[in-house]
Simulated scan of single mutants.
Amino acid sequence: MNNTDPLHGITLKRILEELHTKIGWQGLYASVKVNCFHSNPTMNSSLNFLRKTEWARVKVENLYKKLILKID
């Protein structure tokens, strides 16, 4: 079975942790304008929001693909 999804097996938590390490909360907010990255950001509140909000999660996943996986 050939899975072509580059995010297969990568958790949302890992995605957020790696992006936070690379660009910080300010960089995340600059790329994805959501309050959970701007007003007292925490990993848990951001994960909760992203799990409930598909459009924001997709933007974060696309940012991960671009910055971490180097896929456009």
Rank of each mutant, 00 (worst) to 15 (best):
K33W: 01
K70I: 11
M43Y: 10
N40M: 10
S39H: 12
T11I: 00
T4I: 13
R14P: 02
S46M: 07
S46C: 10
H20I: 11
I23H: 13
L63Q: 06
L12Q: 08
C36E: 11
F49H: 10
W25M: 10
F37Q: 04
I68E: 07
V60I: 10
L7G: 03
F37I: 02
S45K: 11
S31F: 04
K33C: 12
V58Q: 11
A56N: 04
V34F: 05
K13L: 08
K66Y: 07
H20R: 15
K70R: 14
C36G: 01
F37C: 02
K65D: 04
T42Y: 00
Y64F: 05
N62I: 00
H8R: 08
I23T: 07
K52V: 01
W25S: 11
N35R: 12
H20A: 14
Y29T: 04
R14I: 07
T53E: 07
L16R: 04
K33V: 12
L47N: 03
S39M: 07
K33H: 09
R14V: 11
L63G: 07
G24P: 00
T4W: 10
I10P: 03
T21F: 13
H38S: 09
R51C: 04
F37K: 06
F49D: 02
L12R: 07
L7Y: 13
A56W: 01
A30P: 04
K66T: 08
E61I: 09
H20E: 15
V34Q: 11
L69D: 11
T11D: 02
K52M: 01
K66L: 05
Y29I: 12
E17Y: 12
E54P: 04
D5K: 12
P41E: 08
I23F: 01
W25L: 04
N3H: 12
K52A: 03
M43G: 06
L67Y: 03
K33F: 10
R57V: 00
T4C: 13
V32T: 07
D72R: 15
K65Q: 07
D72T: 15
C36F: 08
E54I: 05
L67P: 01
D5M: 08
V58E: 09
E18C: 12
S46P: 00
L69A: 10
Q26W: 14
T42F: 00
L19T: 08
T42M: 01
N3W: 07
K66G: 00
M43H: 10
I71H: 12
I71M: 15
N48C: 04
T42H: 03
S46F: 05
W25H: 13
D72Q: 15
S46V: 03
E18R: 10
T53G: 00
N48A: 07
H38M: 06
E61R: 14
T11W: 05
T4E: 15
E61G: 09
L47F: 03
N62L: 05
K22L: 09
H8P: 00
L63M: 05
R57W: 00
G9E: 12
R14C: 09
K70C: 11
N40Y: 11
L12F: 01
T4S: 15
G24Y: 06
L19A: 13
K52N: 08
M1E: 06
N62A: 08
